[in-house]
Computed example of a mutant assay.
Amino acid sequence: MSGQDWTSPRLSEDMELSVAPGGPVRYARTTDKAVEYVAVANEESGVLGYLWACDADDAAGWQDRPAAGRDASNAGGFWIPKLREFKARGVSPSQMLAELAQGAGGGRIGQVVPGSRALASGLAALKEIAGDDKPKQPPASPVTRGR
């Protein structure tokens, strides 16, 4: 190359991003409105987390309970695809909760706790209920003493 500056329109043009078709159909993952929720529990860990729904934003999801450890994360791996199945069938988020409240699940992935359907003012409130309202902090570094 010569000492002249070389430019290409491809390097200075704005990129146009577009959503590619396909992929799983899913409910919106967030909302700023009130959410209905049900508890999911197993015998070993107790409450694993909460399935939540908001019809106003066509949103639904899984909020794990950190105190339940890996069981909560593993349960989410079962429940999240279930939510996609309901969305693919065209079921509203609240109807999905009603159907799941009929006793879906079982074993280590948990089962919807009968009579646990409740309302939270929003996802932040549900995270607080789940015990996941604390900011994530890095582990404290060990203190080293001078000699």
Score class of each variant (00 low, 15 high):
P138C: 05
R117F: 01
V113E: 12
N74G: 03
V35K: 07
E13K: 00
M96Q: 14
A72G: 12
G146V: 10
A60W: 01
G49I: 07
S45I: 01
A140G: 15
A124E: 10
S116K: 12
G69F: 05
E13H: 02
L119W: 04
M1W: 03
V38I: 11
Q102C: 08
G69D: 09
G106Q: 04
G106Y: 04
L119A: 05
G146F: 02
D14Q: 05
N74D: 10
N74P: 00
A118L: 05
D5A: 12
S12W: 00
R26L: 03
P142M: 03
S141K: 14
P114H: 04
P81C: 00
V19A: 06
G22H: 08
L17S: 05
R145L: 11
G115S: 11
A140L: 15
S116I: 14
Y27C: 09
D64M: 07
P24V: 13
A118K: 07
A140C: 08
G23W: 06
S94V: 15
R89P: 07
P139K: 06
K33R: 13
G3N: 15
V35A: 11
F86H: 08
R70A: 15
W52F: 10
D132C: 03
W62F: 03
P24C: 04
S116Q: 11
G110I: 00
E128Q: 13
S12K: 01
A118Y: 00
A56T: 14
G131H: 07
M15W: 04
A60C: 03
V47E: 11
D71M: 09
A59D: 07
P81T: 00
A53C: 11
G76I: 02
A130E: 02
G90W: 01
K127I: 10
T144L: 14
K82S: 05
S18Q: 10
